[in-house]
Design a protein around this nucleic acid. Structure first.
Lengths: 328, 328
DNA sequence: CTGTTAGCGCATTCAA
DNA sequence: TTGAATGCGCTAACAG
């Protein structure tokens, strides 16, 4: 590997000057800059980032912690983060951790690797305080958690409005018995979406009805079975996420029912999968990749010295596909 | 941040001894090892990996290059690689690059970051030689390419046998007009699966029929439309991957047909999504996560000095779900 | 504008 | 078994 000493030697300057010419920091004559860079280019010189990190204290790498890589929501977010990071010369160090213990450990590993900051999707801990401590005073952006982390920068979508959007769509289609399959109770995202659902339903003079789920396909299926077998079965449902919606849809189809004939279904997230099932899932779309990209931007902002705590809120929209129809 | 000097000072030993006690390399008395480690633990000392890398020349990090993070196949593989790496104290540096140019650039960035080796999924270049050059003499394991990279360690599944498995299943169900929707022609994976398909079909005295696709949902849909609109429409198809199979299935359903009533469909890969569509997709399963995990293992083996070029071949199996039925 | 001098935090010689 | 010295490759302060 050719290093900066080789370049400096060939250019007939000191290593320090070569460094300045290459990084653009510090005053160097235009002539030497050009000469040094030309030589570097010819040698395909790539500064050793490890050495650079050790010396400068910045690694140009970002730690990304996601809860569950097999849930298709997260890869989409990762993709957005990865490409935004790449565009800014940053590299993503990826880690997936489900529980608080492994999250603590993983963050610690990433810290030892010198990441400049963290993007944490969801909060694996019980409190924002624990999360901040695990991040070890490094800049931190939380994605998709709002209420519980008021003193940290976050990137979120407007869950209340999104949930309301779904309900409004069903009401416009003439539905009056609209149930909601929620996420795990207590979670911000869950509560906000439930709140939006209830608000919009009550505004129309209708009675809310919430069945708890946990974002999984299975929970969606189980919830819908309970709903359809119970009294006053709904003609439409909104769900906490697309996975649950798909589970619900499969459960209806599995018992010979039809969607949207027997039940209209609205998902939430608009993961890629939503467009691939048949019929296509009507869902509340959030730009998942953008969520990741904006998190990178926010982190970058903090890394450049801006210490404001900010909440970036992205809008949502309804994507109509085939799982919703007029009430009969 | 507390560093090794602090630990050494508190233990009353030199930094060198502290380092030896912590890493376990070199002779140190059991007593001092214990003392140093106790102090380190009390301080929650985490050696700075950056410094360690610079000094030792090893970073304990692996570069993972995937072509397309939004194709659900790759996140599953990433998850397997990530957890295997974590279990071995390695960290994954992730990058996604579609074309050869960006792949070259990305590998270069990862190299500058000091990754100890690479796992490359597919070969973004025209030849194994270019890939090796882009990896810059660092150990390299290729996943899912076999033919074109005979002189590199690879982890693959037996595509020929997998494709044959699918055909055999359809033949057992009584189908005789069985078409195959392939991947992009020229790709190893494509050609091998086509070969397996043709071999098995010919063995049964049946005539093969291949329509080219490109692994996307759309290509599957287009191919199946062409097939059904043409003469001698098949009663069953095998596909190069699950995404194409799902596209095919949706195309049939979209025109009012039924699956498997009008067309039996077998996918390939068994991505998570395969179980989530309705009806569930019958498919040739490969353990995608295992593919990633084994790649990490192979790389690790090379990193520990074993320079044998090896090909790890994982087996496949048929998962019967709802998209295949008896020929009418 | 440029060169010299010091580290960054650790691993690894070489002596003792 | 331990310590002192050296260097990984680079950036950053300080002189000139």
């Amino acid at each position: 590997m050719t290093n900066i000493r080789d370049i400096a030697a060939e250019a007939g300057v000191s290593v320090a000057t070569a460094s300045r010419a290459l990084t653009g920091k510090g005053r160097v004559s235009a002539a030497t800059v050009e000469r040094v860079r030309a030589i570097a280019q010819r040698h395909r010189f790539q500064p050793n980032e490890i050495a650079r990190s050790l010396s400068s204290g910045r690694s140009h790498s970002l730690g990304l912690l996601v809860p569950d890589i097999t849930n298709p929501f997260f890869p989409e977010l990762m993709a957005g983060a990865e490409s935004a990071a790449k565009a800014r010369g940053q590299t993503i160090l990826l880690t997936a951790a489900l529980g608080a213990d492994s999250a603590r450990e993983d963050l610690s590993v990433l810290r030892a690797r010198g990441v400049d900051g963290f993007i944490v999707v969801g909060n694996p801990f019980d409190s924002a305080e624990q999360l901040r401590e695990a991040a070890g005073s490094r800049p931190l952006v939380v994605v998709d958690r709002s209420e519980s982390v008021t003193d940290l920068s976050t990137v979120v979508t407007d869950h209340v409005e999104g949930a309301a959007l779904a309900v409004r769509h069903l009401i416009e289609l003439g539905h009056t018995r609209i149930a909601h399959i929620s996420g795990p109770p207590g979670l911000d995202v869950t509560d906000l979406r439930v709140a939006g659902y209830e608000r919009e339903l009550r505004a129309a003079g209708l009675e809310p009805r919430v069945v708890d789920g946990d974002f999984t396909v299975e929970s969606g299926a189980a919830a819908v079975r309970a709903l359809l077998d119970g009294p006053a079965a709904p003609s439409a449902i909104t769900t906490a996420n697309d996975l649950a919606a798909i589970g619900a849809m499969n459960a209806v189809l599995a018992r010979g029912g039809s969607v949207p004939g027997d039940l209209s279904i609205v998902g939430y997230d608009d993961i890629v999968l939503a467009a691939l099932v048949h019929p296509g899932l009507t869902t509340v779309a959030q730009d998942i990749g953008e969520l990741g990209a904006r998190a990178v931007e926010e982190l970058e902002r903090q890394l450049t010295g801006d210490t404001d705590v900010r909440t970036v809120s992205l809008s949502t929209s309804l994507v109509e596909r085939g799982t919703t129809g007029r009430a009969s």
